[in-house]
């Protein structure tokens, strides 16, 4: 039996969790600040330092975590539904590392200095290119193994290039930032990063608006879906582009944060009765919730210098991934 709860209840529960976690995120930082005073200062627009910490540090960080996490969760749900493959996710099929490569090229070699949106455009282009490469390498109806192998190859290549370029970059600090691009971090994000993140993210979200039913039809396979009115060619391009837009924008700001796109749709799928259209909004909300929670954990962990948030998501995600593989192995035998 499928234990499906109604979608509206799931969305409500996720929404309440997000509200609660966001509040917690605003209360969490390296320094303790008096919240009432901070709120007072924030709303009165005064020059108070507590208000400054709340509105310029913790609020943008919270919003960026929610948006970037949502994009990764949604990106995972979209790719899994499109490729009808539960292991397809931005991290595994190259989107994230391609985005990191694109962002590194534009940022460290001066393009991003020319206009603000150059950075996310670099990330988006990188994500699209890497995803298409994996897709073409693996072929249309690729099995899970083929897809993952193609993803491994493209990821390795993109990350090697990231490393190389950071070593060649003019900035003396570039080399030390490799870990940041490979693991992802939300430290020191400001509202500037929010503006970098927003345009591509909104455009991507709009592109997949109302695509849920089409993804449902893909459940029957590509040919049946085509016979039911789905324009496969356009759908593929639309989704690849949308995922590139949202994941590319997110990675340009946070670096490649792993496993959210894989884990979140997986956990939520049984709760929506495995239906792709019902999975999209919960996956976005769940992704935001997971990244925000991981980022709070990062801020609370006592460490010399902040731990990268990708470390936490990978510590959760990698064992989960292994469990998934074992599960599939058992199903097949």
């Amino acid at each position: 039996m499928i234990s499906a709860i109604t979608q509206s209840r799931l969305i409500l529960a996720l929404g309440l969790s997000i509200a609660f976690t966001a509040l917690l995120s605003l209360l969490t930082g390296s320094q303790a600040i008096p919240l009432l005073q901070a709120l007072h200062q924030s709303f009165n627009g005064g020059p108070g330092i507590y208000g400054l910490i709340l509105t310029e540090l913790r609020l943008p960080r919270t919003l960026v975590a929610l948006l970037a996490g949502a994009s990764l969760g949604l990106g995972g749900a979209l790719m899994q539904s499109l490729l009808r493959n539960p292991l397809a996710s931005p991290g595994l099929i190259g989107s994230a590392s391609g985005a990191a490569l694109g962002a590194v090229i534009t940022l460290y070699f001066g393009l991003a200095g020319m206009f603000t949106l150059a950075l996310p455009i670099g990330g988006i282009a990188g994500a699209l290119l890497a995803t298409l490469t994996v897709y073409l390498l693996a072929g249309r109806d690729a099995g899970i193994l083929t897809l993952i192998l193609a993803g491994v190859a493209v990821n390795a290549f993109a990350l090697a290039l990231v490393s190389l370029l950071l070593n060649l970059a003019p900035s003396p600090y570039a080399v030390q930032e490799i870990a940041l691009w490979m693991l992802g971090s939300l430290a020191n994000v400001s509202r500037n990063e929010l503006w970098i993140l927003l345009p591509g993210t909104l455009a991507g979200w709009l592109m997949v608006w109302r695509q849920g039913r089409t993804l449902d039809l893909l459940t029957f396979g590509e040919e049946t879906a085509a016979s039911m009115g789905v324009d496969l060619h356009r759908l593929r391009w639309r989704l690849f582009l949308a995922v590139a837009l949202i994941v590319g924008s997110a990675v340009s700001v946070t670096g490649a944060i792993g496993f959210i796109g894989l884990v979140v749709p997986h956990l939520l799928r049984p709760l929506v009765g495995h239906q792709p259209s019902r999975l999209l909004i919960p996956s976005a909300m769940g992704g935001g919730l997971l990244l925000l929670t991981a980022d709070i954990v990062v801020r609370l962990l006592p460490a010399q210098g902040e731990i990268k948030v990708g470390v936490v998501t990978s510590l959760i995600g990698a064992p989960f991934f292994l469990w998934l593989i074992l599960q599939r192995k058992r199903d097949m035998s």
Partner: peptide
Amino acid sequence: AVDLEQVILWQPDTLFTSTYKDRSISLAE
């Protein structure tokens, strides 16, 4: 290294910095 919240709570009136190479672009900068 100190984190930004700490810097703000110290309320410095001004910040001095030094670059040991020409200004370049990195997340650090």
